[in-house]
């Protein structure tokens, strides 16, 4: 589904990712963990070309999604980002109504008529486990929602355009335990239809939601394995030191 082959990435002279190769299966949840500055978010952002927006960066190697190199010149980045959605650390709804937030991508991409858009908005809100909480106030501002609801709205917005992959960069780090648990439950349920890649500082969250975990340190992918194995018997000393809190 997603395949990175010998990926090296540079911010100017800084070598941020060193020879990363890995494969992510479809309909799975993959978590990336590691200390700040280890390259996990940089790697995540490579997967929908968010790093293209940063001047002075350079990529070597290839990133394939469904067998196609997403850095190929023929790739339309807007189309790519529709297929590979992203949810950020801080909920970032548009200053619009709840309905318009979810409908935005559909309208911009001219995906369907009014009735189809309404149906898709409803389905996306149901898929993001928000529908019951907002169905009676779809025209209210998204800013009236709580932080946890706003984050689920952002997930609904990403789901609306029917992506195959959803990238999540610390999606629950700004949320309370109840909202966090809702997001985790959501991630678990979304796996049936989407491929999810999540970056998190919360190791227990990685352990709870993911099928596979990758541990990054100083730009290297130290270990990439099944989550259960990573958290019971990691093969590398560095992984063990990090997840048991002995790092540094």
């Amino acid at each position: 589904m997603i395949e990175a082959k010998n990926v090296n990435f540079y911010y100017g002279d800084f070598h941020a990712l060193k020879d990363i190769s890995l494969e992510i299966e479809a309909n799975s949840v993959t978590a990336f963990i590691g200390p700040s500055g280890c390259g996990k978010s940089t790697f995540l952002r490579l997967l929908n070309r968010m790093n293209d927006l940063i001047a002075g960066t350079r990529l070597e190697g290839s990133c394939l999604v469904n067998g196609k190199n997403i850095y190929d010149k023929s790739v339309d980045v807007d189309v790519l980002r529709k297929d590979i959605g992203m949810v950020f650390q801080k909920p970032n709804p548009f200053p619009k109504s709840i309905f318009e937030n979810v409908a935005y991508g559909l309208k911009v991409n001219r995906m369907g008529n009014k009735a189809e858009i309404s149906a898709r908005v409803e389905q996306s809100l149901k898929d993001s486990a928000l529908w019951d909480e907002v169905k009676d106030k779809l025209n209210k501002s998204a800013y009236e929602l709580s932080g946890g609801q706003q984050q689920r709205l952002c997930i609904a917005r990403a789901l609306a355009v029917k992506p195959s992959v959803i990238l999540m960069d610390e999606p629950a780090s700004a949320l309370d335990p109840i909202s966090t648990s809702k997001i985790e439950e959501l991630i678990y349920n979304l796996k049936a239809n989407y491929t999810i890649v999540i970056v998190t500082h919360n190791m227990q969250q990685a352990a709870r939601v993911s099928d596979k975990t990758g541990f990054f340190m100083l730009g290297e992918l130290i270990e990439f394995d099944e989550t259960k194995r990573m958290f019971i018997s990691p093969q590398k000393k560095q992984t063990q030191n990090y997840i048991t809190g002995r790092f540094g």
């Binding site: 190791m203 227990q204 352990a207 958290f231 019971i232 018997s233 990691p234 992984t239 063990q240 997840i243 048991t244």
Partner: peptide
């Protein structure tokens, strides 16, 4: 402490 890896074992 929610131990993992060697600590959990």
């Amino acid at each position: 402490f929610a131990p993992v890896a060697v600590d959990l074992r």
